[in-house]
Amino acid sequence: MPLSTSSNFARPDDAFRAIVEAHRGLTEEQSADFDAALVLILANHIGDIDVLREALVLAKRRMIDGQQQQQQQQ
């Protein structure tokens, strides 16, 4: 099964909000720790290495796009 990128939540705003609120009141350091744990929990729930790898590629693309933009600005 490939990575699903269609919208899966009936109410996507609720999902986004839930994550945002979980970070409220945390320091940068705590937020990063929190994200690390959350990623591992969700990755295990997905439980499919191919889907995980696809998700990693999709997320990583942001870093590459960001670097290219920075280079263009320089």
Binding site: A32, D33, A36, A37, V39, L40
Partner: peptide, 9 residues
């Protein structure tokens, strides 16, 4: 950090 998360989970 990821290792810390694993150990704690």
């Amino acid at each position: 950090r990821l290792r810390k998360a694993v150990l704690s989970l």
